[in-house]
Every structure is written in structure tokens, then in C-alpha cells.
Amino acid sequence: MNEPVIEARDLNLTFETNDGPVHALKDVNLTIGKGDFVSFIGPSGCGKTTFLRVIAGLEEATGGSVTVNGKSPDEARRSRAYGYVFQAAGLYPWRTIAGNVKLPLEIMGFDRAEQARRVQKVLDLVDLAGFEKKFPWQLSGGMQQRASIARALAFDADILLMDEPFGALDEIVRDHLNEQLLELWARTEKTIGFVTHSIPEAVYLSTRIVVMSPRPGRITDVIESPLPRERPLDIRDSKEFIEVAHRVREGLRAGHDDE
């Protein structure tokens, strides 16, 4: 395996709620290597988003340990080790597309010339050159989500964490964005953590697929994808693809039967 970037050891997270404690993550062990594209898939309540948030330092584990680049998630967040893409694009309506992409750069104190250079570069990368001066409402949902990916890429963190980024988009747009994301991953060699509840999306994108199940949230299977890194859309009709998808589905069903 490549050099490990994210490591979780016996990770536990319990939320205290009015109805008693909820075990959101139980004994999670996982290592993500540099340049991996890892998908987390499972039904709602399986802790996939929570796990991503723990990695990002937005939630704190109640037991076990996580390291990101060898540091605690909170230190990693402070050193701006990752870009995070949420389910909604969440662009600021009062900023243009370029202004939105510039936001993290302003916060992180890049100088103006560098800001402009990076905005141009990442907008090219997500195929949004020419839309700098548009406001978010002038763009389609898919384009807005691409702009939000550009925003996460702008400060060039090695890790990209994506929480169901295409969940709210229709399937045609989603296919297109999946293809573009793979291209982008190949060009930038980022390490990507990707939460989804779409089996084809997980299989198409990932080098590894982490199948999770709820109550308590845990990992039930980790599948190494046999698919090559180069993946045209029609790879989804291949035998290997269908086999992997089948195994994911079995894993999801097994997790469901435990209840």
C-alpha cells in the first residue's frame, strides 16, 4: 500500500441524546493511503458522514484515534490539510463564482496575484473558465457543485473530503460529474474520501469501497476494486464492475440482516 494518509484505530463515537446514547461509530479501523479514492457507502444512519466529519475535525471521537498526515484531525484542520465539499454547493449568493473560489484563499491570506492565479487554475480544472463573473444563481446545480469543488481545491490541500457531493443532482448530470471527478483525480493525484449512497457511483469512482451499516455505525466490508484507474463510462457494463457492485450490495444486505 501507498504511504498512509488517514488512519483510524478502534474509533468510537457516541452521541448523547435525549433518548439515550447513540453509537454513531463503533470500533472503526481503516487506513487510507496516499492517492486512494475511497468511497463510504451505506444506508442513512450508518455513520459514513460522521466518519468523514471526524476525519475533518468537525466532530470529535469519543474513543480510539484518528490521524491525518500523522496529526490529530484538529491539527490537520488548523493546518488546512483538506478541502471539504458538502452535499449542497453552499456558494455565497453575494459573491461571483471567482469570488466564491477566492474565499478560502482570502481567509488563508494568499496575496492578490496568487489568488487570481489559483482561481483561474482551479476554474479551468473543473471546466468553468469563462464563468468567473457570473453569480451562483445564474449557474445550473451541476455547475454550482463544480464551483464548490473548485473552491475546495483552490488552496491545494492533498486531501479532498466529499460528503454526497452529487446527491442532489439528477443522474445524467451526476454521470458527467463523476467522469470529470475521475479526470480531476488523475490529474491532481489527491487522496479522496467520498460519501455516497449510490452503488454504481461508489464502484465507478473508487479504488476502495468501504461498506458500512447502522446501529451501531460500523464497517462491514472493505472492497479493493479490481478496475483499472482509467475508467470510461461504459466500464459500468463490464463483468468486473457488475461483480464489485454485487459484492457491495451483498455487504449492504448483510449489514441489514444483523438487526
Binding site: G57, R77, Y82, G83, Y84, F86, A88, G90, I107, M108
Partner: peptide, 12 residues
């Protein structure tokens, strides 16, 4: 919450 979380990921 999402917009506030986004700012936290930038360590704003």
C-alpha cells in the same frame, strides 16, 4: 450549519 462548518474547515 453547513456554511459555518465550511468556514471551520478553512480554520477561519
Amino acid at each position: 450549519v453547513m456554511q459555518l462548518d465550511l468556514m471551520r474547515t478553512y480554520h477561519a
